[in-house]
């Protein structure tokens, strides 16, 4: 039990073959007193009573065909889709984001980085919507510094969907300069600036229309401990989910 008397939030961490940040994500969740990480296995269909699901990053099925295209058909994904349809919180990080777009649980797709290179570096992210279950512990306009490490992080979506997403506040995170400027300034046609991958509208993270499914390319699980390289800017996402789970438990 956590110190505040509530039972800990059970956060499921879904493992596919080729995923490689599953243990980082487990560790990140375990740094929160009010949370308990729970393994979910791709061949299972049982979500083990978790309160939220996190699909971590890596290279599921070797990124064969398209990133996330094969993982999307794993047995656990049908259960995760049902869970999401019932309002359950689902977060995808990096390859997890790619899997969620392939599964059509999130709009758009992630294609090759515009520079054709694997990018591994810190990025600055501006929180565009701090009202989601995944960012509610942040303030709008907060600038977070965490890492990206990907080859296919170039977010693409058709113009009509993009304008609807913007109007709805589904563009949750944008790459930006360290002072928070520049976000959304580029069209994705140039290399450099704050976007590491040429993503349309500098998009780094999006929600579905119902705001219970969220995907982001950067890796918050690598920025959860003060005193270590990486900083603590990733904590806000886990904090948000844990708070939301606790609040909805209280509401019930």
């Amino acid at each position: 039990m956590s110190g505040n008397g509530h039972r800990p939030a059970r956060l499921g961490i879904c493992v596919f073959p080729g995923i490689n940040t599953d243990h980082d994500t487990w560790h990140a969740v375990a740094t929160f007193a009010g949370a308990e990480p729970v393994w979910l296995w791709h061949k299972d269909t049982d979500l083990r009573g978790v309160d939220a699901v996190i699909i971590p990053g890596g290279f599921s099925y070797g990124d064969y065909l398209r990133c996330g295209a094969i993982a999307r058909f794993s047995p656990i994904m049908a259960s995760i889709a049902d869970f999401a349809a019932g309002g359950g919180l689902v977060m995808g990080i990096c390859n997890g984001f790619q899997i969620l777009t392939e599964a059509h649980l999130l709009p758009g797709a992630l294609i090759r980085n515009i520079g054709l290179k694997f990018v591994c570096r810190y990025v600055d992210l501006r929180v565009e919507n701090a009202g989601t279950p995944f960012t509610q512990a942040a303030e709008p306009g907060d600038v977070l510094r965490i890492v990206v490490k990907h080859n296919e992080g170039n977010y693409r979506v058709d113009p009509r969907t993009l304008s609807r997403m913007r109007a709805n506040g589904q563009v949750v995170l944008r790459y930006c300069a360290p002072d928070g400027t520049e976000a959304g300034a580029r069209t994705g046609a140039t290399i450099g600036g704050s976007s590491p991958n040429g993503a349309l509208d500098d998009i780094a993270g999006v929600c579905n229309e119902e705001f219970n499914v969220f995907g982001m390319m950067p890796h918050p699980e690598n920025s959860v401990e003060a005193g270590l390289a990486g900083g603590v800017d990733g904590r806000v996402f886990f904090r948000s989910i844990i708070d939301r789970v606790r609040d909805s438990a209280v509401a019930r």
Binding site: I111, R112, L116, N154, R156, G198
Partner: peptide, 13 residues
């Protein structure tokens, strides 16, 4: 093939 209007970084290179 990449859909018309979708950026193709490899094609550009």
């Amino acid at each position: 093939t990449p859909k018309k209007g979708i950026l193709d970084p490899q094609g550009v290179a």
